[in-house]
Design a protein around this nucleic acid. Structure first.
Lengths: 95, 95
DNA sequence: TGCATATTTAGATGATTATCTAAATATCTA
DNA sequence: TAGATATTTAGATAATCATCTAAATATGCA
């Protein structure tokens, strides 16, 4: 159960959202991910760490590489957040 | 069509998310909203402005008051963002 | 063991951001 | 029009954050 604030903070950076989009297609190593960006590897590592703290991604070492993948569990929570806002709104307009 | 980055930045602050939760229940004036917080009115005004730029809220002046309300249109976009991530993930696991 | 590769950690720096107080603007009403 | 109320704007400050380089850690392999 990640702190909701961590999740939204993690999503507030365009590079981190781009990482999520990449991982949507397939699991990737930190190095592979870094190749898609113009920023340094330590910066990518920093972003991956924030995504990990938010539990938006999972990591698993395989030899020298660390593979990152999406953790969709937390996305379910996010969906609930937004659906809740919208549902209440619709309920209100039906009053 | 707000810039996606504005939307996520707007959601990245706990006070702004709390404002959205308040507006979920009913439309409120800037002053009424401020009463729910320990921070100054100018700070609340700043947060409302960011939410407005992200088009997450709408504002309408009525006399001396300015009423704020949720704008659910943009939430639909956000839902699409997350549903898209989850859908692709499920597609991948069905391969 | 020693070297190469992959990744992270440490520490510094510049940019962005949340917050404040003071002042300005808008509206209402006597 | 003058004073009161509601809200925003301006400008300053402290905290947070994204980024960098250099160094440390982890693993694989000859």
């Amino acid at each position: 159960m990640p702190h909701q604030n961590n999740v939204f903070k993690a999503l507030s950076d365009v590079n981190r959202r781009k990482i999520l989009q990449l991982l949507k297609e397939r699991d990737m190593t930190a190095g592979e991910i870094a190749d898609y960006f113009d920023i340094s590897k330590p910066s990518i590592s920093h972003h991956l760490n924030l995504l990990k703290q938010a539990q938006l991604v999972l990591d698993e070492r395989q030899g020298q590489n660390i593979y990152y993948s999406l953790n969709t569990t937390v996305f379910q929570e996010l969906l609930s957040f937004f659906l809740n806002l919208i549902d209440k709104e619709e309920a209100k307009s039906n009053e």
